[in-house]
Nucleic acid binder design. Structure first.
Lengths: 186, 186
DNA sequence: GTCTATAGGCAGATAGAC
DNA sequence: GTCTATCTGCCTATAGAC
């Protein structure tokens, strides 16, 4: 595997764990076992360019991941439940949630860097799109599917935030029971 | 008004707008028109101690604010709708949402500083408590009220995040239509 | 393409006069 | 209780050898 891909892979994990500002360039270099010169050779615009590459990588991984789950279950309701249960399992295992959430990145520099804000917006929209497609396949009209998909995205993002704040998977576990019910009744 | 209170008031606004890391000590000093020595006299433990004082201040303001809205409307459904509409109006006016969300603060240092994480957790629980009380007054049993209140908190927090990411009040506007319906059917 | 060395800036924090 | 001056350390970024 080439150096550039390795930098992206390792940096992606670090950004997800600690946020953009929380990870220093030196930490990335150490983790990748490369030097500063090498990093700036592959990413001439420095840390911000690296983050954008990482966001694209996250986009691919997360979209594939969610799409896979939504293909495996017959209805949006069951798929949602399975997805949230996967998140809680991740949290129980790792003590943190590394995927599906970019709130730390948005909060830190979304307001400062337009390219990064746009990359995050695209990520959220991709997730939301998968939910909406499944809801339409279930028979919901487009408008209702879009609204419901938006609420799912917001609730899951907020649920992850609550889990991190409380250091407990409780909020997501509760959501996995409540949220699918609201889908059923839509 | 004494210096300490003025520092807290001004810093609270800055932290809400730009997050914890986004605001430097020098910016706070300039906004408050004080010197570094003065700030460290009132907050010997520096920036972190100041943030905790600000979080307590936010807690008071936000709790009072939400409680006020929830007292003014007969049901949780109507109160929720009114609250979200207030948020969207704020967003339209200021271009940002300063209250009701601490996600940026949680994301930035919640994982690093235990006192700050706990202060944020307490804030979320207070909001959730107001929602739950109103839902119980509407006739929901305690368990269902707690679950629903959690979903409301998560959805609103996530909705704010989506608005900031998309630079649009659209997500919250959609939520103000979808979320109350899920309450109605609970 | 990778390295070392270093620049230059700004952060948070401290000391001590008044 | 407020001030100014200063310290130390970390950050991103660059220059230039190999």
């Amino acid at each position: 595997m080439d150096t550039k891909s390795r930098i992206i892979d390792i940096s992606t994990a670090l950004f997800q764990q600690k946020g953009y500002i929380g990870v220093g360039l030196n930490e990335i270099l150490k983790a990748c076992e490369i030097s500063k010169g090498s990093l700036y050779h592959h990413f001439p615009n420095g840390k911000e360019e690296l983050l954008i590459a990482c966001l694209q990588s996250m986009n691919d991984v997360i979209t594939t991941d969610i799409q896979d789950i939504f293909n495996r279950y017959p209805t949006a309701r069951e798929a949602t439940q399975a997805m949230i249960e996967k998140l809680t399992a991740d949290f129980e295992r790792d003590g943190t949630i590394t995927g599906y959430t970019f709130s730390s990145i948005v909060s830190e520099i979304g307001a400062l860097s337009e390219p990064i804000r746009l990359a995050c917006a695209s990520l959220y929209l991709n997730m939301q799109g998968i939910y909406a497609d499944k809801l339409m396949a279930d028979g919901l009209p487009k408008g209702a599917a879009d609204s419901t998909a938006l609420m799912m995205t917001a609730a899951i993002e907020g649920g992850i935030m609550l889990c991190l704040t409380q250091k407990s998977s409780g909020p997501l576990q509760t959501l996995s029971q409540v949220l699918p019910n609201t889908l059923k009744e839509s």
